[in-house]
C-alpha cells in the first residue's frame, strides 16, 4: 500500500472504486483476496477488515485504483473464491464512508492551543499530550481527514496512521442499484 500523499486517488472519481466484500470469517481469506490483486499487478489503495454483525462473516472494504474493465474481471475472479459470499461495488456518491486517523504532531507548549483549536473545529480528540508533541485522533469521511492532515502537516507530523475507509450504501433505494450479487463457479 502506498503512503498518503498529494496524488490522492480519493479525489479522482474516474479511477476510484470501493468494493465491499463479504467473506467467510476463516484463516487465509484475506490472503486469497489480496493475492488476486497482486497477481494482476494492481495496487490496493486501502483495505479494512473486521467481522460483520454475524461473526461467521467478515467484511473487507477495498479501495482500488483501477479502471472499470480490469475491475470487472477482478470482481468476477473474486466471486470465484469459495470463501467470498457477496461483493458490492459501492458508488462513492451513493454510500457513506468513514475513516479513522491517529497522528502525533510536534508542537511546543506555546502553540499547543492552536492544535487544540483545530482539533475542536474538526471534532478530533486529543489522545495524549507531551512536552513537545500531541497525539490526536479523528474520524469522519476521508476528505475531511485529508483536510485535517494537511493542516497538521504545517506543524510537523511525527507519525500518523490511517485505517483505510469502511463504507456502506446510503439508505436511499438508488444506492442498492449498483450492488452486484454474484455466483461463484
Amino acid at each position: 500500500m502506498s503512503s498518503i500523499n498529494s496524488n490522492n486517488p480519493y479525489g479522482d472519481s474516474r479511477q476510484h472504486h470501493i468494493l465491499s466484500v463479504m467473506v467467510q470469517n476463516r484463516p487465509g481469506v484475506l490472503a486469497r483476496v489480496s493475492g488476486l490483486f497482486a497477481r494482476r499487478g494492481y495496487n490496493i489503495y486501502s483495505l479494512a477488515v473486521a467481522p460483520s454483525d454475524d461473526p461467521n462473516y467478515s467484511r473487507i472494504t477495498i479501495v482500488v485504483d483501477i479502471s472499470a474493465t480490469p475491475l470487472e474481471q477482478i470482481v468476477k475472479q473474486l466471486f470465484k473464491l469459495i470463501d467470498v459470499v457477496r461483493i458490492t461495488e459501492l458508488d462513492p456518491r451513493k454510500s457513506v464512508e468513514r475513516e479513522l486517523m491517529i497522528a502525533t504532531v510536534r508542537v511546543d507548549g506555546e502553540h499547543r492551543g492552536q492544535i487544540a483549536e483545530l482539533a475542536n473545529l474538526f471534532e478530533a480528540k486529543v489522545l495524549a499530550v507531551g512536552a513537545d508533541a500531541v497525539t490526536i485522533s479523528i474520524d469522519g469521511n476521508p476528505e475531511k481527514i485529508d483536510d485535517f492532515e494537511e493542516l497538521l502537516r504545517g506543524y510537523g507530523i511525527v507519525e500518523s496512521q490511517r485505517t483505510g475507509r469502511v463504507a456502506l450504501p446510503k439508505l436511499e433505494r438508488e444506492a442498492r442499484k449498483g450492488a452486484t450479487k454474484g455466483k461463484a463457479s
Binding site: 473464491l81 459470499v85 455466483k183 461463484a184 463457479s185
Partner: peptide, 8 residues
C-alpha cells in the same frame, strides 16, 4: 457450509 459457492 459453502455459502459463497453456488455454481450456476
Amino acid at each position: 457450509s459453502l455459502p459463497g459457492y453456488r455454481p450456476n
